[in-house]
Design a protein around this nucleic acid. Structure first.
Lengths: 367, 367
DNA sequence: TTGTAAGCGTTATCAA
DNA sequence: TTGATAACGCTTACAA
């Protein structure tokens, strides 16, 4: 008896010797003795169904392994108590979560919203998305990712491109499948799904040059904070160089996103060079703002100035004149990322580390 | 000795008597004896810093309660191991999570994206958003919410309006603060933050009537699946009735959202009534699609037909002619919901169960 | 087919 | 100021 006693009584006594943390009321979940209705636990269901905890766990996850009548009793009890299993507990126990963490520069950007929908669709119902925005600030990225990793997600989706050293480190050592969605640029340890912003920027510019435009303005978000902007700019410069055109920094403007800003920047660029004959806006929002501005002011597009956008928003094709722009497969990026992650979560080892979904130059009426 | 022995040895022996589940390698997280680098646990940090588990826990959460040098050692160890605490475990232990569940009809809708940003901003960094879309299908709502509740979120945000009985039940018994965001309509147990779609629909229609339009078309999403659509329609009908106009169901069309559909529906309505003098589109997307269509076809707006939108998308004000529409405070809805939830999570009991953020009729050039 | 015990990684409680 | 222990609600491994 003094050595390894086997009665429950003693074992439990041994466990409870020290002051235990007071547990929540252990009355049946339905029969609450207090005020707020306690959330039903699996144990409550078990008690009500007259079986053990484990039988409930099994009945809920592997219905076939439990006797029919038992299962039925459990299902009734579960429904009666409005039981919703704690995934926190479940996932802690299994070591696997069904969460996919998503880090985006800006939640309100419709382009990202589209990608998220694709991601969500590809992942299906068994996964949930935990989303966080960095407000476009690169320095915030590591903190946000770290916070998300605390939930031990099954996978991580970040917006591709440039990351600081700490972030790269975090991604590389996260121990979970990571997809960088959007840009295709850096050598990286993660999978990449997207297109080349540099190539797209170059293609857009080459189109303008091919159309005969020579004095071309360039509008983007601050390149310092925004790697996409920087890559598109590199493409822009590369196209100029390839055509033997001298870059004119005075015609390159950085500004915040927004339709109104498009009109302002348009006017500013024309002020800087009266003979400006085309502008490459790296977002349709500016381009459309400028286009409407021209319409209002009676400026002929592309007669006086050609306008090139980027993104191919839904309205781009409908505006009058219809906007020439670069189409990017937003939804598909999400979808492809989701498929890739599912495969990896399922244990597959994938070889290809990069999926180029390409882009499409949509030549319409503004160039 | 036979009664309540106090030595650790025996207590542990008693616990370990039966075949224990094989634990993961217990080597230091950095010195892995296998292949994949194990994620560091708090215990690893403790070992490395030469303190107990609890001291680490304290040092990380309440730095002030730990001796300076101890804390420093712990911070170093934590950094060296790239330690990221498991929120799964932490939140299971505390019974409180820092997750806010969000259920939206459609992730890709820019309007919802804006609200999400507001929500995220108001909640701040200590909360994460778990997001799920229902694809506009009301019947999917309960399942989605149930799945989300499994994560024991600190609060729940659903898109307001109509819910089926099972969903209402779930919301009422969730035991956490719930905000219905968007519509202000049903009596509900949850808080509501939004505006009255009915009032907005009525105001829009009254504006058209006041302008002298009498044969007014109405375009919306299927009212059956979409409570907002239904409420706006009720407002539409109410305005007609108040003005003594006879409703003409033939001029009411249901269709899917999309710019292109706007042009199609516009043409269809004009076919149904050649003397149609105005159309109330319950989304700017259709309205703008129709507007561009008119521009292309040389149809005078509002000369031949007046166009009224809903939502006040950014472009609405810039289009030529600028679109008359209803402005809805999307970002503010999210922000207000977030503030409300934070207060409730913090334990405050709030009296007001409904926040009417109103809407604004933006009279511009298309009416 | 069902049940028991141990463990997931953290925090609350109490003792030292 | 620090540490030992039980508990959070579930699942895995094993026994019955």
């Amino acid at each position: 008896m003094s050595k390894a006693p086997t009665t429950d009584g003693l074992a439990k006594a041994a466990r409870k010797r020290k002051a235990p943390r007071p547990r929540k009321s252990s009355g049946d979940a339905a029969t609450v003795n207090g005020d707020a209705p306690r959330i039903a636990r699996m144990e409550d269901v078990a008690r009500r169904a007259g079986v053990s905890l484990m039988t409930v766990s099994r009945a809920l996850r592997f219905p076939d392994t439990v006797a029919d009548d038992t299962r039925q009793r459990i299902e009734e009890a579960s429904a009666a108590l409005n039981y919703v299993g704690s995934r926190l507990a479940g996932q802690l126990a299994t070591g696997r979560t069904r969460l996919v963490a998503v880090v985006l520069p800006d939640l309100r950007n419709p382009a990202f919203a589209l990608a998220m929908q694709g991601l969500s669709d590809a992942l299906g119902e068994e996964f949930e998305l935990v989303v966080s925005g960095t407000h476009g600030v690169q320095s915030g990225e590591e903190r946000v990712i770290r916070a998300l990793l605390g939930y031990r997600p099954a996978a991580l989706v970040v917006h591709g491109g440039r990351h600081d050293a700490a972030t790269r480190d975090l991604l590389a050592n996260s121990g979970i499948p990571v997809v960088e969605m959007g840009s295709l640029v850096t050598r990286s340890t993660s999978f990449m799904v997207g297109y080349s912003n540099r190539a797209a920027g170059k293609a857009a510019t080459q189109h303008l040059i091919a159309r005969g435009y020579r004095r071309i303005g360039f509008v983007s978000q601050p390149k310092r904070d925004n790697s996409r902007a920087d890559e598109r700019w590199q493409g822009f410069r590369a196209a100029l160089a390839a055509a033997g055109l001298t870059p004119r920094p005075i015609l390159e403007i950085e500004t915040e996103l927004g339709y109104e800003r498009g009109a302002e920047v348009f006017a500013e660029l024309r002020r800087r060079d009266r003979k400006l004959d085309a502008i490459f806006f790296t977002s349709d929002r500016w381009a459309l703002g400028a286009l409407f501005h021209c319409q209002r002011e009676g400026i002929a597009v592309p007669g006086e100035v050609a306008i090139m956008g980027f993104d191919d928003l839904d309205i781009a094709a409908l505006a009058v004149p219809a906007l020439t722009t670069i189409h990017v497969p937003r939804y598909e990026m999400g979808w492809e990322s989701g498929k890739l992650l599912r495969a990896q979560i399922a244990g597959q080892t994938l070889a290809r580390r990069s999926v180029d979904l390409g882009f499409e130059l949509k030549v319409r009426e503004t160039t």
